[in-house]
């Protein structure tokens, strides 16, 4: 996937300005940056939820706008934070929706097997017949991930998956992200606020500042004292823990 000169304006104000970078396959890529830096907007444009004004999102050699929506949904899954589902849905029913691009409303035996595996992978067997509005935030998040797994896409885009989760659930979430990449071979792109989660769990980091890419590279290249101080305008210290550059700010 390649992003080329992507630009977005809201009411004449440029929020994303000629952003270009390439997304390596089979890796975890985190988009970080201060509020209003444009990372979520870029994410929205990559996932076709937000229309871009100019530039190009090239997905497997083809402009993302030229893909058939249905075909794209078999290759690219998006999970946003706005999950206000009004319907009475059980966990299993929610996960079943992941098969919609393939089978529509009719679930085949093959789909059932995939759904079973997705539920087992997220350790949701005990909850599968519970309604999702009866679940805790962490469980619901896992159910959503199970749906994405059932969707069986090569690319998974997560918009702030650790938002509103406590450190236990947020850390578990990041471990799941790592497993999606290492065990299932997916390319995971996520927007994160916590720099240390990004540093510890991703392979590449794309740091945004004022609507442009300030730095894109491996974790070690991006997470340095100078880079972070420049991007966030705060003093940073970098510690090396478990071989990863973790930061503290004050």
């Amino acid at each position: 996937m390649r992003i080329h000169e992507l630009t977005k304006q809201y009411d004449g104000k440029t929020v994303v300005d000629a952003v270009s970078f390439s997304i390596p396959k089979g890796k975890v890529i985190s988009l970080i940056g201060p509020n209003g830096a444009g990372k979520s907007t870029v994410m929205g444009m990559i996932s076709r939820l937000i229309a871009h004004d100019s530039g190009l999102v090239e997905f497997e050699g083809k402009d993302i706008g030229k893909w058939k929506s249905k075909e794209l949904s078999k290759r690219l899954a998006i999970l946003t934070q706005s999950n206000n589902i009004q319907m009475k849905l059980t966990v299993r029913e929610l996960v079943s929706f992941g098969r919609f691009p393939y089978s529509g409303n009719r679930i085949t035996p093959e789909d059932s097997a995939i759904i079973d595996r997705a539920i087992a992978y997220m350790e949701l067997e005990a909850f599968q017949d519970r309604f999702i509005d009866e679940l805790s935030g962490g469980q619901r998040q896992r159910a959503m991930i199970a749906m994405v797994i059932a969707q069986d896409t090569e690319y998974v885009l997560l918009d702030e998956p650790t938002n509103n989760l406590d450190i236990y659930h947020a850390t578990n979430m990041m471990k799941i992200v790592r497993r999606l990449c290492d065990e299932l071979g997916k390319t995971v792109i996520l927007v994160l606020h916590e720099i240390n989660y990004a540093a510890f769990y991703s392979d590449y980091i794309c740091a945004f500042k004022n609507g442009s890419v300030a730095k894109f590279g491996t974790v070690e290249e991006v997470i340095t004292k100078e880079n972070l101080s420049d991007i966030y305008q705060v003093d940073f210290e970098i510690l090396n823990i478990a071989g990863k550059p973790l930061s503290i700010y004050y």
């Binding site: 929506s69 249905k70 794209l72 899954a77 999970l79 929706f97 691009p101």
Partner: peptide
């Protein structure tokens, strides 16, 4: 009408699942 079930998941999810 057959897409209604998916539409109730919200705009982002519907688009994610390939609905125009």
């Amino acid at each position: 009408l057959a897409l209604l079930d998916v539409l109730t998941l919200g705009k982002a999810q519907a688009i994610n699942l390939g609905v125009d």
